[in-house]
Each structure stands twice: as C-alpha cells, then as structure tokens.
Design a protein around this nucleic acid. Structure first.
Length: 684
RNA sequence: GGCGGGGUAGCUCAGUUGGUUAGAGCAACGGAUUCAUAAUCCGUGUGCCGGGGGUUCAAGUCCCCCCCUCGCUACCA
C-alpha cells in the first residue's frame, strides 16, 4: 500500500477556530486515524494561513507587527486543535521559510513556462492608509437600493453585486476617507493554458461527482486569468523580480501544504520529491470546504502542473455547518468557538456527533443541539459505555478482575462483529462515517441484547459463576471491539479503554483475537453524559461574546480570502480571421436614440428606445451608464446589432446591442454614424 | 434573473436501474427488567414522501408547472 499524505484546509490567522471549522478537521482526523490504526503509512499536515490585508490591518489596529499577531494566533489555533484531539503530524505556518522558497519556486517555474503575464488594474486606493483596498474594506451605500454601510462588493440588503467604485459615498472602512481610483500593474496566472489538463484531471476520479459537475459549469463560463499579485504594503512574500509586488495570499496558502510537509520531512529524513514529484509513489488528499473548491480544483492543480509537481490524488469537499437548522449566529449564541465549546463540553461528544452526520457528499450538516444531547447520551453512554459498565462489576466482585480462561461460546457474536468490521472499514475509507456509526451502534444493540438474554444478575444470584464469568467476558470482548471501531472517532476514550482492559494497543488489525485469562482494571466511567445545562451555558456564553471587529464576519465555514478585484486583461485575445459571410451575418444598423433613461435598480444600465427605420422601434438595455447621461444621448445616431437574439434580463428584454469602444477599464465610447445617415440603414 | 442542490414520521436522515402494506436512529407512548451513568430489553408509526398536472399496469423514484429553502452566479447582450 502506498503511503498517503492528507491535509485539511489552512485556517486563516485572523480569527479563532469555531465549530464550523471543526467539521473539516474532525472529518479529516477521523479518516487519518482510521488509516493509521490499520497500519497504513499516513501523514497529516496543516498550517495557519497567515498573509493578506486583513491580517495586516488587524495587526495595525492592535499596534503590533503582523508577525507577532500571526505568532499569537498560531499558538491559539494549535491549542484548540490539540484539545479537539486533531492529530496533525505537523502544524506549520505559511509565514515560513519553507513556504517562501516553495512559493517562489512554483511561481518562477510557471513564469518560465510562459504561464504568467502582467496587466493593468484599476483599484480603490486609500491615500490616508496608503494601501489598495480589498472590496471588503470599502463601505458605502448600495447604488442599487441605497442601503447604508454596505461592503464594496455586494449589498446584504438587496443582494446586488457591484464594483466598489460604484458605491455611493464610498469610504475606506479603516479611516473613513473616500477612496480614489488608482491604476496598478498586476501579475496574472494564465489559467486557461491548463484547460485541457484540468478537464482531464477533474474527471479522473479525483473529485466527487457533484464537484465535477460544478467544475464543468466553470469550464463552460471559460477560465479567466488569475490575479496573483498585490501591491505593497502587503503582508506576504514579495514576488521575485517585482519590487513592491507581493503574492496574493491565495497563491501561497495551498503551498503551505507542501511547506508543512517539507518541514516535517526535514526532521524525519524523508525525501520531499518522493511525495511531491512522483504521483505513483504516494497518494495525496486534500479535505476542503465546498466554498474553496475553485482554488483547490483549478488554480492549485494548475499551479502544480505548471511547475512540474505532482497533482493531488483526490480533493474531498464537505458542506457547511448549520446550528439548529440555521446559519451560525452571534445573536442566537450559535456562533460557537472551539474554546467556548471546550469550556463546557467534552470534544469527543462533538467528534461523535459530526461522525454520525458526515457522509462522502457535500451536503451541509446540521448541529441540532437537542438532538446532539440525546444522540450522544443514547449512543455513547447508553449503548456503548453501558456495556462495560454493566458487566465489569461482576468480574471484579466475583473474579477479582479475571476474565475467563478460554473464550466461551458466544452465539457467534465475536465472529459477527469481525465480519461487520470489514463493512465498517469500507465505510470509513469511503468517508461514509454516518453509515459506519449506524453499523457500529447496531452491533452495540446486539451486544446489549446478549447481556439482556443471559441476565448475568440472575446468574450471580443463582451462583452460576462460570457462566457469569463467561457472559461478562463475552460482553467485555464485544465492548473492546466496539471501541476499536470507534477509535478513530474517540481516541481519548479508546485510550481509556486500553488501560481499562490492560491491552497493548487499540489497533484495528486484521487478526483481532478475543482477550481471555487476563485481569482488567476496575471500571471507571469512560464518559460522562452530556449535561444540557452545559450546552445552555455554552450558548449563553457565546451570546455574550461581541464580535471583536467588524471584519471577522460570522460565517459557517472556514473563511479564507477570495479574490474579487476587477481586473483588466491587456493581452489581446487570439484573433482568428473570419470570412465575408460570417461578417455579413451580423446585421448592423444605424439607429436613432429617441428615448433614454436610467433603469431603477440597475447602476450600470441605461434603457434606450431606438428608431431603426423600417425595422421599427427597439428597446435596448445598454451597459453605458458609467459614461453617458441619458440626456446627452437623445437624438444621437448609434450603431445597433439588429439581429442579436433578444436577451431577457432582470430589468426587461433587450432587443439588440449598441456598439461602443472601451477597454473595460476606464472610458466607454459609443460609435456613431456621420450626419446624413438615416435610421435603419444597413452598415457594411 | 440564470444555474445547481435540497424539501420523506416530532427531530436528524436512508431510500438502489420506477414494482409487493415507504424505512433507520433518536424522541414519545405501553410493557418487562433492575447488572449498569434514570442505562437495557420487548412492543407501538392515520408520514396528503413540498403543491398541482402528466407518462405508466405501477412513481418518493421519470416529465412539465408552481411554492419554499440553501448555494453559486448575474446589471453583460
């Protein structure tokens, strides 16, 4: 079996770990632990994602350096993960030497291969703060509905999307200064160069079907070049040969997977290239949330491919977390951090509950707190722990902790369990944890039924000691198998079980033999039931916590920054020649603007009513509001594409298109016909 | 607005290529039991399978329309 390398997405070093993040880390950790206890060579890596404007700003607000902030968060994250029993082999940081070296290497290799180009970009710039402002750092009133204090990219009230430069009364959210437009040279990664490779890769079985389908939507829309640079000051790595330009945080974030492993390999004498250059040697899997699919299934494999590295064997996406059926919310107290959870509750409750909900798909999962209490108590305490609790007493009371010399007749239960374990192993491997948990609890029911029917309390009363000892030996053996099965989910309880039963380990080997003729420890509660009061206390405490800053917006998923800046691609598209017929297929006409008006709710459109002579009157929605006032268009002659398929839009049907020149960045210039031309004349 | 995923018992969810009286766990209710962290065991479901049409001998499962919900995406024509 080839070794496997597994990662979870890197949490952003701008905030605390919360229950939404933990879905992914718990899911990955269970999968990794499963493979490990079955003896497979498996390594699990992760790191803090440390770069970008939000980190820089937060550090500035706190009056510390970004490095100091990142270091502090690193310790916090690491502690949270440790306490949730997430067993990384190494937890690293993207702000590391390894990451810098690898990011540069990947960039330079791609540049050498011709996958990088530059282009000019218009962006909002705050002169006072001296930085280019990401969309989320600009606030103003929505140009569409007028709602106050909205982000620069979309309106939370009417859900309109727009450019930050279109906001009314736009202000830098840091200092309140109105931003100015400024041009800057940016570096782009030519994603479209990888289209055929990506199409092949995404259908190679590396992805879940739902994900592959989503990908084909993106392919249909066309792959766009990716803006990978940001202007300084920016907390990140400076781009080689480009002073003042930095890698966009999303460029070096996934490289963090490699950097983390490299750091580990150096300490353990493992060859880096074996893992990252030779796809036939090792399997590489990334666990991610479905929100960052784009980065992991397009940019990331393309970057790796372009730089001559191997690509991932699989990318597994999961859904979002809701709490009590709704988005996590601070006002409802359901935005719960890892730490507030731990202050009240046992991490294994949550690990089990998530396991009981998770499948291989990308569906969202719901943490219903009442269900959580019932489910954990009933399954873990009532069924599993109870099995040991109800039989161990007899073993100590009557046999000084000694199990039967030989494994007794057990109605075939031990064998049944072993057989079922094969199915359950398959479930684990397929990430069908919910099915696995159901199958395990079904076995627990079998075991409890056995105890019920043998009625050891009656055997004790009637002094049938041999049978009593045998019955309890069987029950404890079944309990042990259950705990081996649950080991990936409940590592701490598995360890307590190991001590309790005096076992060498709790591994899941192919040849599990019954334990007999041995002395076990006195039973001690292996898990306390969930106390509803503590759950309530946790919610209450989460309700009191006010958001530390406006920028850590609540989100049900691991949040990483997303590129949203507008960009201008200077590179002319590959122009092919067309024949005369193709050109003549376009029916261009002179048209006269007889009416022009703004469109309510649309900040880029003008509604034009055009006189096209013999063709009648046309209604056209044109995206030219940024350059023209309606009044100045009245009576003007323009060029109309008359046979364009009518387009139904949110604001009505557009029956054609008026031609204008523009580079997408700044100006927009309508074409017109010389005086003397008449509406409806054909242009050719 | 467009695209995609959902909508199945009080709760959380399964339901294979359409085929017998639609399932599981938890909760609830009735009974048993008392070894066990008020745990366990037996028994109990009149669920318009979101609504309405349609195809079919037969539809939760296929087709069309609508409603609700979540996500992505849109001011471009």
């Amino acid at each position: 079996m080839r070794p496997i390398l597994v990662t979870s997405a890197l949490p952003y070093a701008n905030g605390s770990i919360h229950l939404g993040h933990l879905v992914e880390y718990v899911q990955t950790d269970i999968w990794v632990r499963f493979h490990k206890i079955r003896g497979r060579n498996c390594l699990y890596f992760c790191a803090d994602d440390t770069h970008g404007t939000p980190i820089m700003i937060r550090a500035r607000n706190e009056g510390i350096t970004p490095e100091a902030l990142v270091e502090r968060i690193y310790v916090e994250h690491k502690t949270d993960f440790r306490d949730f029993l997430i067993g990384f082999d190494h937890y690293h940081s993207t702000n590391s030497e390894e990451n810098k070296i690898l990011s540069e290497e990947i960039y330079l290799a791609n540049r050498k291969a011709g996958h990088i180009h530059t282009a000019s970009v218009m962006q909002a710039y705050c002169a006072k703060d001296g930085i280019f402002l990401p969309d989320r750092f600009i606030r103003g009133s929505c140009p569409s509905c007028g709602a106050l204090d909205q982000y620069g990219d979309s309106c939370e009230v009417c859900s309109a999307t727009y450019s930050p430069l279109d906001l009314n009364e736009a202000r830098c959210s840091l200092c309140g200064t109105p931003p100015e437009e400024r041009e800057s040279e940016h570096y782009f990664f030519n994603l479209s160069n990888f289209e055929s490779f990506l199409k092949e890769w995404t259908h190679s079985g590396a992805l879940q079907v739902q994900m592959a389908n989503k990908l084909s939507e993106w392919f249909n829309e066309g792959l766009k070049a990716w803006d990978i640079s940001r202007d300084g000051p920016y907390f990140g790595f400076e781009i080689p040969d480009a002073p003042g330009k930095y890698f966009y945080v999303w460029l070096d974030a996934p490289v963090g997977y490699m950097a983390a492993s490299w750091s580990y390999f150096k300490q353990h004498g493992i060859e880096f290239d074996r893992y990252w250059r030779q796809p036939d040697q090792v399997e590489v899997y990334h666990f991610i949330g479905k929100d960052i699919l784009y980065f992991h299934t397009l940019f990331w494999p393309a970057m790796l491919k372009g730089a001559g590295f191997r690509t991932p064997t699989g990318v597994f996406a999961h859904g979002f977390l809701t709490v009590n059926g709704q988005k996590m919310s601070k006002s409802r107290g359901t935005f719960i951090t890892a730490r507030s959870y731990l202050q009240q509750l046992d991490p294994e409750y949550l690990r089990y509950y998530y396991a009981a909900k998770l499948g291989k798909g990308v569906d969202d999962i719901d943490l219903n707190l009442d269900d959580f209490i019932q489910r954990v108590n009933s399954d873990l305490v009532g069924k599993v722990v109870n099995l040991a609790s109800r039989t161990a007493g007899f073993i100590h009371k009557h046999f000084q902790g000694q199990l039967s010399r030989d494994y007794p007749e057990d109605r075939g239960l031990f064998k049944l369990f072993l057989d079922e374990m094969k199915t359950i192993a398959e479930f684990y491997h397929e990430r069908e944890f919910a099915r696995a948990m159901r199958a395990i609890m079904n076995l627990a029911d079998h075991a409890n039924r056995y105890v019920e029917e043998k009625a050891p309390w009656t055997l004790a009363r009637d002094n049938h000691l041999k049978e009593l000892q045998e019955t309890c030996t069987v029950a404890l053996n079944l309990f042990r198998l259950l705990m081996v099965l649950l080991h990936p989910v409940l590592p701490s309880m598995a360890e307590k079980t190991r001590v309790f039963l005096n076992l060498q380990d709790m591994n899941w080997t192919a040849t599990l033999l019954p334990i007999t003729d041995t002395v076990i420890q006195p039973f001690r509660p292996l898990m306390q039931r969930v106390d509803p009061k503590k759950v309530a206390a946790m919610v209450a405490a989460s309700m009191e916590e006010t958001p530390p800053s406006a920028h850590s917006a609540p989100s049900p998923v691991p949040v990483l920054p997303v590129a949203t800046e507008k960009r201008v691609d200077e590179k002319p598209s590959e122009s092919q020649t067309i024949d005369m017929d193709s050109f003549m297929a376009v029916d261009l006409r002179v048209a006269k603007v007889i009416q022009a008006e703004t469109v309510t709710g649309a900040d880029k459109l003008l509604r034009l009513v055009l006189d096209v002579g013999p063709l009648g009157v046309r209604n056209v929605l044109a995206g030219i509001r940024s350059a023209y006032m309606p009044e100045q268009l009245l009576g003007r002659l323009v060029v109309l594409v008359a046979n364009l398929q009518p387009r139904k839009m949110k604001f009505g049907v557009s029956e054609g298109m008026v031609l204008a020149a523009g580079d997408g960045a700044g100006g927009l210039f309508l074409l017109s016909a010389d005086s003397g031309a008449q509406p409806g004349m054909r242009i050719k």
